[in-house]
Design a binder for these strands. Sequence first.
DNA 1: CTGTTAGCGCTTTCAT
DNA 2: ATGAAAGCGCTAACAG
Lengths: 345, 345
Amino acid sequence: MSDHVTIYDIAKAVGTSTATISKALNGRHDVSETLRNRVIEVAARMGYRPNVHARGLKMKQSWLVGIVYGEGEENALEHPLFLPIMNAFKTSMEESGYELLFLSQHSRFVGDNLLSHASSRQVDGLLLMNIAKQALDPFLAASKSIPMVSCDAIVPSLTSVLTDNADASAKAVRYLYDAGHRKIAHIGGPSNPLAVSGDERAAGYHKAMQDLNLRNDAWEIRAEGWTPEDGRKAFLELITRCPDITAVYCAADFYVMGLLQVCRERHISIPEDLSVIGFDDVQWTGFVSPGFSTFRQDKQRLGSVAAQKLLEAIHGESEESVIRIPAELIVRGSCKTMHATEVQV
Amino acid sequence: MSDHVTIYDIAKAVGTSTATISKALNGRHDVSETLRNRVIEVAARMGYRPNVHARGLKMKQSWLVGIVYGEGEENALEHPLFLPIMNAFKTSMEESGYELLFLSQHSRFVGDNLLSHASSRQVDGLLLMNIAKQALDPFLAASKSIPMVSCDAIVPSLTSVLTDNADASAKAVRYLYDAGHRKIAHIGGPSNPLAVSGDERAAGYHKAMQDLNLRNDAWEIRAEGWTPEDGRKAFLELITRCPDITAVYCAADFYVMGLLQVCRERHISIPEDLSVIGFDDVQWTGFVSPGFSTFRQDKQRLGSVAAQKLLEAIHGESEESVIRIPAELIVRGSCKTMHATEVQV
DNA sequence: CTGTTAGCGCTTTCAT
DNA sequence: ATGAAAGCGCTAACAG
């Protein structure tokens, strides 16, 4: 680095003291207008950049926000929603002057862990994404001293931002019902104490079916993981058990991939024989054959709301809460609308 | 933050000076074994964490590595290879004690830009990914004072790590040739001065065809972007122009998505009527119908080699170079092996 | 081997 | 309105 311009250099150039430079640059009101302008002008001309370390050392603040992700999982960063959400989060935080730091577990220091890393960097806040239950406790313990929000998972005692899964499930069932379907199955995601999407979507489905007096436990199945393979297995079990279902609402687009594979093998055609709705609207959803309907999570808002909440927390205006972002049903050609005569009563 | 344990506290607890504490903790050799152990033990017990700012201020070093990507493009982070590569890079850097910082363009300061951000944070190195040509100059100017490497693009005067595209293309053509194909087409990526994949894959294909005396310019087409839609358009033009091709080597899996869509519409069956090879092996490649053969870029190595090179550069052992990581052809069912009788001479 | 001292660049009382 | 001086936590001479 050759940043070497310091406020001391500017002070010399302007012919004043470092204190005044500091004040001028930070928009304090106890500096004359003229001097301030002059300082700013000279600083710009000299290519001055405040040294964040000196600043952080003095102010005990870093303008850094840590992001903690999928503690303990490998390939954790490859979650399809992670990137867009983080991107939105990043943009919002940057508008407020913060930069993003990936916190690590490694360290050259004694008895180290991710959280102590955070404190050693004096990060001003933390975004927790998809963090594992067993890794949570230390964070909770620290949550009094460092602001944090959770995204995509409900972490008790933390503000959590996530998709309105129950609402989406209700919409899915309603949509299929309105299209004439009655035997509507659900392939749900795995249960997880923090990452509640699997549970919430399943519960939402369950309730919606119940409300319509359509509920049949045999139509509900939960996949073991979130992969296409898991979806494939679940669907195989499902159609073996209930070959007469006319629609399947899947908690993940990946499940639909597995399902489609089975359908091709067994010559089940979509949407003629089976209607399908997925969840996530990942990049390729529109290009598989057949293109299928799915819920688009609002990654943009998920990320920017998380950012907004974290900023509030940093400013001490925090209030623990669970914030829901609605998902939108993207309609493609995977659902059949039945004729009145086909609808079973 | 409540990190408040400083070396001063430890000094008091141990009954020695801060200098000694510092030396002990940093493994200097001018501290007695006994004292060192005692210091380390006490530090651990007290939950000491070095303050990175104080350290950085003194040592002009931050243990931070900046990552710069897709300058100017929106949704740049959603490039399918970005995340896995960065993940591998991150892991390697962390093993050496570095953490990753996303540099931003925004700032509250005068005449600011991303690079001055880097200097104000005193980042120890920079990883450039997918950076646009027009945004490059300032980086190059700074590359003398701050170590940087480029990944997935060739940046002149910087060590660049990328997939061996020419080699992959040669393999693709060879593979199809050995399977009996002669009329092998190529849908290439767009030309880009830095992100050379499109050009390199096309050139590699061109040369391989030439070497086999198979070259036919009509079989070469370049897509306008990297999306399925671009691939679709290119393929439409291609089969209109040369309906008799028996194989297509695509520079991107996304192109294959577009191609498959067209094939379904026109009842071109794969691999019977047309053999296909893609590029990238993105997550879903094995689950579309039909699963197709494609080149898997070694994201793991791409990232870790980039990290290794950056570390070398940081340690001053750098030597500008272009490093190639081979891609592996993943064979699935999208290529037909012709019978000897079918092979055209 | 250990301690004293002087800063790294910045902000912040507190005088002036 | 401006400046002198102290100090954030740490490391690196330099003495002892």
